[in-house]
Write a protein that binds this DNA or RNA. Sequence first.
DNA 1: CGACGTCGTCAGGATCACGTGAGGGGCGCC
DNA 2: GGCGCCCCTCACGTGATCCTGACGACGTCG
Lengths: 225, 225
Amino acid sequence: MTRILVVDDEPQIVRALAINLRARGYEVRTAATAAEALQQASAHQPEVVVLDLGLPDLDGTEVIAGIRGWSDVPILVLSGRSDSLDKVAALDAGADDYVTKPFGMEELLARLRAMLRRGGRVEEETPEVRLGEVSVDLAAHRVVRGEETVRLTPTEWHLLEVLLRNPGRLLSQRYLLEEVWGPGYETAQGNLRLYMGQLRRKLEPDPARPRFLVNEPGMGYRFEP
Amino acid sequence: MTRILVVDDEPQIVRALAINLRARGYEVRTAATAAEALQQASAHQPEVVVLDLGLPDLDGTEVIAGIRGWSDVPILVLSGRSDSLDKVAALDAGADDYVTKPFGMEELLARLRAMLRRGGRVEEETPEVRLGEVSVDLAAHRVVRGEETVRLTPTEWHLLEVLLRNPGRLLSQRYLLEEVWGPGYETAQGNLRLYMGQLRRKLEPDPARPRFLVNEPGMGYRFEP
DNA sequence: CGACGTCGTCAGGATCACGTGAGGGGCGCC
DNA sequence: GGCGCCCCTCACGTGATCCTGACGACGTCG
């Protein structure tokens, strides 16, 4: 099912959008603040984002930038201000479309369809990753080793997800910490080592000599496919 | 140069658009009728199409369909009617965006940029630099020599990065030292020699006779592509 | 021919980063 | 309240990395 993330601080708008979208068969997640939006976006990997610019905690363009840093998901911006400069800023920040309130529901749905149509052409995803005898299903959040399934804690999963979405690339500790623990945790490197160890213990054939979750001293970590 | 096709039957609008777009470095073709538009689109393969719905000979949605039959080029629709049903029809026919007249030139340009950005993303960028049989992927922080990957320490990477980002240019020891080790280390030239040697040993086909990481006595070092 | 400066290489120890173990606090569940 | 799970902090051994100094090779110039 197509996942949509709706971000707006006005509950009645969120409600109206959610009802209309669910009625058309979309799976809808909602967020009322920028922080919540960024978290939901990374956690649930929506296929399109509907974003209100007037959020209480952060400027809308910063939310766009925060998502564009790691994802190409189409973003449709919603705004009360019909100010033209606003549109320019949002679109240049990386948004894909712009609608001003009040908007017609039919028009919004048509624009969403257009975005999904366009975006759907690009991604051809295979959500199954193999690490030796272990297979990871990113979509189903499942890890299987031989016959039995492996249990991962939320933090372990989050870390693994970030690594697996960047196969072969070296990711700095700073980036990993910010991605998994959020901003402000850039110094908790002991933590990162700990969880990397846990993942290796659960996934690697020989945890003492890692083959897939590799460290480059002083640089960061890398998932070697 | 980026090619844009502008389709409108009102000469003054075509003229205004063409002037503004050309001023921003786009290559502009124009068409006043649907027939002309379809012919131009197939002849010149524009990277984005700006299309007015109110054409004399054919309905706008038919033009969209006529283009969509063979091309994924982004289409921005322009219309005098702010009727919502119109937008829905155009977007569902395969348009990617919709702007109503009168429109702000800045907004239109921003939307065009957004569309071009999205379309251009299809091609995956891999900034790969080659040194003989060794290939360096700057983004993934990865060096491959034949089959196996070469491990570089942080300092080695930093130095290599500076060199590779200035292909063919001669870089003084002073500059390299300041760039890699930071200010205050301008006198540690032994260091620079050491790490240059390490890089050559790991990357050059014959480390004793360097072909890519060259020294110019008394001057500095140069990466020879 | 010899002095000099620059460059490349080698080997030492100091320092830093990484992996691992043990233990405490917070939270939900029985 | 007790229990289990998850998260985080701290400490220590080990290995890698970095810097320093010394040495020989080469080319230049007096």
